[in-house]
Amino acid sequence: MSVNSKRVFYVKYLANPIYIDILKARSDVRLDRIENESPEDFYAPILNAAHVYQIGAARDELAPHFHVDAAFLKRTPNLLLVSSNGVDPVDVEACTDAGVLVVNQSGGNAHSVAEHALAMMLTLSKRIIQSDRKLRREANVNRNELVGNEVEHKTVGIIGLGNVGRRIAALCKGLLGMKVLAYDPYLTAEVMAERGGEKVELDELLRRADFVSISCPLDKKSRNMISTHEFALMQPHAYFITTARGFIHDEDALLQALRDKRIAGAGLDVWSKEPPPPEHPLLQFDNVLASPHTAGVTIEARQNMGRIAAEQVLDTLDGKRPPRIINPEVWPVYAERFKQAFGVTPG
């Protein structure tokens, strides 16, 4: 394969510089960087020649014309692979229609996200956020007004028992002695038991859990999955935690549930607009713990994600079948397009 014959590009940023280091070690791979503000006469030739697009997961950090949709794919006729930390800015169906493989780096930040969810649960349960705010606002704080709860023997309901969910289950069950319920329509009861959770339906989970933790991907089925009906099923002392994706929960419905004191509070790492503006109504509650989609943002997770992404891209360009395919049904069409591009059929 000739020098720089395999073309990869990204926009604005990568998870970690290790991605560049790994790709630079390959003389047959050219890596291009585009900025959100790059003029079209600069980025158009890059898009036209590209075989791989390494795309970030934060939809609001990426200029709309670099989101992967049908219009974008018309400008990338040679594109074979979209590699993303998350698929928020990627229309997977449009990629499938175009014969483009979509992969992610699932599991690369599982420990980081799970620890963040657990930190939110403990902070809310022990009322640390309210205590901190009172101390900053008031003199002579009465600690008896800040009585919290232990989490031992409480029930956590985990929605989505994949890489992150199973890690939350392990921490909650093994470290804290909690009972774990789980809802995941894609896993059997046996598999969920192996991952530390008791399989239940969503409504039952919501009724029984002291903490509801969201760790499922965003797709058509999960969009607005937690709305008015679901918040009404939760116990008044229960907390809602999400470290997954915005739009899985209905922010207006959550706002109303908090106003009506139907639930005890919430820990929110993901939003419909990221980051949320300071005047966002959910940020006005002292029983809401907020972070700007940073659950998976640690030094260790970023390095792991960068390494996984780079290695998977290179394996795919070398004709191997990557392990984290989002749209496996596209493989026959993709394989034919790959053969046309590089003269070999991928394995």
Rank of each mutant, 00 (worst) to 15 (best):
M1P: 14
N4H: 13
R7M: 08
V8W: 02
Y10W: 14
L14F: 10
N16V: 12
A25R: 13
R26P: 06
S27K: 13
L31M: 10
D32N: 11
I34R: 06
E35K: 09
S38N: 01
D41Y: 13
F42G: 06
I46D: 00
I46V: 15
I46A: 05
L47F: 11
N48W: 14
I55F: 05
E61V: 13
V82A: 04
G86P: 01
V87Y: 07
V90Y: 00
V90G: 05
V90N: 01
D91L: 06
C95P: 03
V100E: 01
L101N: 00
L101A: 03
V103T: 12
Q105A: 13
N109A: 13
N109D: 07
N109G: 10
S112I: 03
A114L: 06
A117G: 14
L118A: 01
A119G: 09
M121W: 05
L122V: 09
L122K: 04
L124T: 00
I128G: 02
I128A: 10
I129H: 15
D132M: 12
K134V: 10
L135S: 15
L135T: 14
L135V: 15
R137Y: 10
A139H: 12
N140M: 09
N142I: 12
R143F: 11
G148F: 00
N149M: 15
E152F: 15
H153L: 13
K154L: 13
T155W: 10
T155L: 11
L161T: 05
G162C: 06
N163I: 10
V164Y: 01
V164S: 07
R167S: 10
I168Q: 08
L171Y: 09
G177A: 09
K179W: 08
K179R: 15
V180R: 02
D184K: 00
D184Y: 03
Y186H: 12
L187N: 02
T188P: 05
A189F: 08
G196H: 00
E198P: 00
K199V: 03
K199T: 05
S213Q: 07
S215M: 05
K220F: 11
S222G: 03
R223A: 12
R223Q: 15
N224F: 11
N224M: 13
T228Q: 09
T228S: 10
T228E: 13
E230L: 09
Q235F: 03
Y239T: 07
T243Q: 02
A244W: 05
A244P: 01
A244L: 08
H249T: 05
D252E: 14
A253R: 00
L254T: 09
L255R: 02
L258E: 02
K261D: 12
I263L: 11
G265I: 02
G265E: 07
A266E: 08
A266M: 06
D269A: 10
D269W: 01
D269F: 08
W271Q: 07
W271I: 04
W271T: 07
W271H: 03
K273E: 14
P276F: 04
P278Q: 09
P278F: 10
E279Y: 10
L282D: 06
L282R: 01
Q284P: 06
A290E: 06
G296H: 04
G296I: 00
V297C: 10
I299L: 14
R302S: 11
E311P: 04
V313K: 02
L314A: 05
R324I: 03
I326F: 03
P328F: 01
E329K: 14
P332D: 06
E336R: 11
E336D: 14
F342Q: 07
V344I: 15
